[in-house]
Amino acid sequence: MTSLPVSTEKRLGLAIDLDTCVGCQACVTACKGWNDQGYGVPLSDQNPYGAEPSGVFLNRVHSYAVQPIDGAAQTINFPRSCLHCEDAPCVTVCPTGASYKRSEDGIVLVNEDACIGCGLCAWACPYGAREMDAAAGVMKKCTLCVDRIYNENLPEEDREPACVRGCPTGARHFGDFADPDSKVSRLSAARGGYALMPDLGTKPVNRYLPPRKKDVRQDASILAPLLDIKASGFAGWLDRVLGKI
């Protein structure tokens, strides 16, 4: 079971647009909300209203300040979740076969009934995509909302991951990267989508779309020509006389 499929029919994943993401955390909340009552055990919280709350989230949004060599610093919001790697190290290390990658669509899942909660898969993941559920003692991770995307009980527009559906700025896109004509493939190609830490050999499916180039800040004010007023008439004479005193 923990042998990786040689290839998958589809390569389902997300294209995350770092240009349009405003860091509102709606995807974090949507994910927590859906997965708390969807696939597997709930995403438990420990001491949620106490002094030191802690809980499982399958998606976390970081905020970074990036200072280019020239130009102003930028704030870049950076959602981080499972990348559904083709060569997923979290799958092969699993001793029980609980961790697996689906050959039909490439989704990496955990069979919670077989998980012993050893935590080795979380160690093997370079991206911090897996978090242990402290209540159930099993590993939780992004399911790519496998219980939404094929769910015929949902209206068609809802058959995409909760994080994608909930994003108010359209910064998250879901689709099949194996199909070069899919929306996500074309978007990634057009925007120079990149994988995270490719040198670790994990071959992530998800792509991050880098922020678009910012406008160059103009140092001179666009009002400058209007400020350079030459006085004329009496005011001009006064200006010249006063200037000489």
């Binding site: 709350p53 809980g55 905020s63 970074y64 300040a65 200072q67 280019p68 402290a134 990149y194 880098p210």
Partner: peptide, 23 residues
């Protein structure tokens, strides 16, 4: 790690969460 080195020098502006977590 974030691939943002293609833009410039990256620092943490705000942590993703204030409380601790498994990671």
């Amino acid at each position: 790690a974030t691939g943002l080195d293609r833009i410039g020098d990256v620092t943490v502006f705000e942590q993703a969460h204030t409380a601790g977590n498994y990671l």
